[in-house]
Computed example of a mutant assay.
Amino acid sequence: MIQIFGTTKCKATRAAQRFFAERGIKVQSVDLREKGLSKGELASVARAVGGMRALYDAESPRVKERGLQYSAPTEARLAELLLEDPLLLRTPIVRSGTRAAVGAAEPAWKALADAEKAR
C-alpha cells in the first residue's frame, strides 16, 4: 500500500495523489495537519531518502514561524523537531514499505507505482 503524507493545501501532494489515481493505484493519504509520522515511520523514510535533512523543509513558512531559520540542527535534533511538528516536513512524502520519495519526484513515484503494480 502506498502512503502519501502531505497537506491538502500542498500542490505537490495533490499532484502525487492525482499521479497514483490516474494509474488506478489506491493510496492512503495522511494529512500532516492531523497526524504526523511515528518515530519508526520517520526513521524508515529518512533511511530511504538519505537522512533527516532530506525530510526537513528549511524553506517552509513554518520554519520562519518557529524562528528556526538561523539554526543548524543536528540529525537527532531534526528528528525531534519533525516528530513534534510534522509541518516542518517536505511534502509530499510518498512511501511504500521501505522505499520512499520526498517532494515532487515523479520518476520516483513511477518506480513506486511500478513496484506496487508488480505485487
Rank of each mutant, 00 (worst) to 15 (best):
P92E: 02
A101L: 06
D57F: 10
R99D: 14
G51K: 05
A79E: 12
P107R: 06
Q69M: 02
D85F: 00
A100V: 13
A101Q: 03
M52G: 07
L55N: 07
R66M: 15
R95L: 09
P86K: 00
G67F: 00
E80L: 08
L78T: 12
A104W: 15
A76E: 15
G103V: 04
S60D: 05
V102L: 04
Q69G: 02
A101N: 02
A72K: 06
T91L: 14
P61K: 09
S96G: 13
L81D: 12
A100Y: 11
T74V: 09
A58T: 09
D57C: 08
T74G: 13
L89E: 02
V94N: 04
R62V: 13
A72M: 07
R77C: 03
G103A: 04
L89T: 11
E75I: 04
T98V: 12
E84S: 15
E65M: 11
L88Q: 09
E80V: 13
V102F: 05
R90H: 11
A79S: 12
A58E: 07
E80I: 09
V102C: 10
G103N: 04
R62L: 09
E80A: 14
G97N: 10
A54L: 06
S60V: 05
S96A: 14
P86C: 02
Q69V: 00
G50R: 03
A54D: 06
D57N: 15
S60Q: 08
R53F: 00
E80P: 13
A76V: 11
Y56D: 09
E65P: 07
L81S: 08
K64W: 01
L89K: 02
A72D: 11
M52I: 05
R95W: 13
R77H: 07
R66D: 08
Q69C: 01
T98A: 14
R66H: 04
L87E: 10
A54H: 03
R77N: 12
R53V: 09
R62Y: 08
A104E: 11
E106M: 06
D57R: 14
I93Q: 12
G67K: 01
G67E: 01
V63I: 12
P73W: 00
D85N: 13
P73Y: 00
A79K: 11
L68W: 01
G97H: 05
A72L: 01
L68G: 03
E65D: 15
T91M: 15
A76T: 14
L55K: 03
A104K: 08
A105E: 10
A100W: 10
A105F: 12
P92S: 13
G67Y: 00
G97Q: 11
G51R: 02
M52K: 07
A100I: 11
K64N: 08
S96P: 01
L78E: 10
R53N: 11
P73A: 05
E59G: 10
L78C: 12
A76R: 14
Y70I: 00
E59R: 15
A104C: 10
Q69N: 06
M52Y: 08
V63Y: 03
E84M: 08
I93G: 02
